[in-house]
Design a protein around this nucleic acid. Structure first.
Lengths: 334, 334
DNA sequence: CAATGTGCTGAAATCGATTCCAGACTGACC
DNA sequence: GGTCAGTCTGGAATCGATTTCAGCACATTG
């Protein structure tokens, strides 16, 4: 059985109240008492039970993290940053993966509520209204999405798309395709908006290819429509889709970047290691996690912090993009 | 404020005890009482506070997961499987990333103890003795390592190395290098043992290259010593190291697989997408997570289950391995 | 020397849910 | 109609830690 405050009290010859005070408010007890308690704590290897404490103080020292898919390398990086920053302030992390199922989000959040002091919702898929229903309950910070009235941390997706479009335009591309991400994804909508604006400002043509699962498989499935579209460059909602495209292009003998240029988004760990290395828009994933924790801590300690942090994105040019038509498009295409 | 059992009791016109009974032991209350309670529960949207419950029942319905590095794609896959299986039995997951710091493991486990019913330790780095000190406390299942007296789920690393070695031998390789993983890693030691045995049974030569961090950077750093060793094939502790090798080899113009064959371990998500695609030993990562949860559930419900599950591994041959010396080793090498 | 104040301490209440126990009520049976 | 068994309910205790409150001991001051 675990050591409780009573065991310490008995060992130190004082009451439980004094043990508690000695640990939580050392100034309120006599030095001698404090020493006896400290000795007993050391001897018994006592660690206060956070669960019991949380019933009184209402503070669990846990934060809940909800995200759509841990298999997408984007999220582990964010979670790791969250972990690291949370630990610095003595918070532990409760994790829930919804497997891209929007309907699972609300019940999961509800179930976690009593065990956490606040939530970091990473790229939540549930509707705005559903999320808003939690507004009164616990502090919530939303990552990679904006939902009034919650503070949020997002990346400048539109800016990233602008950079990518400028890059492709400079390489001579005039007809580009976009492989869309999940419709429920705010990031997707934001990126698409930015892309449309950039494309039209350059007077380029944009072909939007269905909604793909944000996975390698989604990219593989989208590859053939992309080729059929006769675009000379393709932007993917994220790196996994882009890698799926690369994979299918290679299998079909569609040369990258000679026949078609490919741009990803996120700059996940292995984006630079595929071949050709993936040109992509980098997001400061660690910063998102860190900033999210910071905002949440502000919120939980009552500071206002109704902020919206937008982090810059940065185009990383690698081998998967090149000048248009080093090779002529295949004749079968208009 | 959240709805408590008292609110429900008041709304239903019964005592808190009856509310509790109506929900937990429906047979013990009159049907009419049960209905009134159920109606009140629905109207108030009441959800029992798991934290408070756990103080009495000693059951938190949480399981703790501790792992060394979420940035290694191997672990998110395992964690996702754990999540999925845990949710099926109504358990939530507490996650802790130790950042490969063995000294962090013990305090983290201790801190989590009161909030979880049991632990899944993934590839723990702490010493056997330290881990054993938790033997009395909470049920523990160890993944990717064996520590008496805990049940464990491991992959057959030695078998995987045997398959990989046979593959390389069949391709004509006689002098192979191994890029070691973290010394504290049980998997590393197990794989090395299997590799040594296999290599000597084939009468091949083995060059062991220092201990590398199990990351892309670790692989990049190990690449030059590998080239200098004049081995015609290299096995890496894991896929990340292997990818680092591929990356550095390409940068140096060392052709893969012509000049040197590369074999990874784990078969992480993107192993098949790099170029050349990585030959690697696949581990049933999802099965490890699932089996771990199953074992832990057995343990937590008092069933004995002092089992050691060993899952098979499977060599996946891709483009990074080929016949020896399609190109002669460079003359600078013996 | 009494009155007032200060510093510490322990008992008791609290958090929310659960469980044990005693008592109330119903129905059956003699 | 009275007794007994059985069913159901509410009150109280419990889990472990925290906090409030009252009281004790000692010191200071008039």
């Amino acid at each position: 059985m675990a050591v409780t405050i009573k065991d310490v009290a008995r060992a130190a010859g004082v009451s439980a109240s004094s043990v508690c005070r000695a640990l939580a408010h050392p100034g309120q007890v006599r030095p001698e008492t404090r020493e006896r308690v400290e000795r007993a704590v050391r001897e018994l290897d006592y660690l206060p039970n956070r669960v019991a404490r949380s019933l009184i103080t209402g503070r669990t020292a846990n934060i809940g993290v909800v995200l759509p898919d841990l298999a997408n390398p984007f999220f582990p990086t964010v979670v790791k940053a969250i972990q690291t920053q949370a630990r610095r302030f003595d918070y532990a992390v409760f994790l829930s993966d919804t497997d891209e199922d929007a309907d699972l989000e609300v019940p999961l959040i509800r179930a976690m509520t009593p065990q956490v002091d606040g939530f970091l919702l990473c790229s939540p898929r549930a509707g705005d209204e559903e999320l808003r229903s939690f507004a009164g309950e616990r502090p919530i910070v939303v990552l990679n999405r904006r939902v009034t009235p919650f503070p949020s941390v997002t990346a400048d997706g539109a800016g990233g798309m602008r950079q990518a479009t400028a890059h492709l335009h400079a390489l001579g591309h005039r007809r580009v395709a976009y492989v869309a991400g999940p419709r429920a994804s705010w990031s997707h909508r934001q990126r698409l908006r930015g892309l449309r604006a950039a494309v039209s400002s350059y007077d380029m043509e944009l072909i939007e290819i269905g909604s793909a699962a944000p996975t390698v498989e989604g990219g593989i499935a989208a590859a053939d429509p992309v080729v059929a579209s006769a675009a000379t460059a393709v932007l993917a909602y994220n790196d996994l889709i882009a890698m799926g495209l690369l994979n299918r292009f290679r299998a079909r003998g569609v040369a990258v970047p000679e026949r078609i240029s490919v741009v990803g988004f996120d700059d996940i760990l292995l984006a630079g290691l595929v071949s050709p290395a993936l040109t992509t828009v980098a997001i400061a994933k660690e910063q998102i996690g860190r900033a999210g924790v910071d905002l949440l801590l502000d919120l939980m300690s009552g500071r206002p912090a109704a902020a919206r942090r937008v982090l810059p994105t940065q185009l990383i040019v690698r081998g998967s993009t090149g000048p248009r038509s080093s090779i002529r498009p295949s004749p079968s295409l208009a």
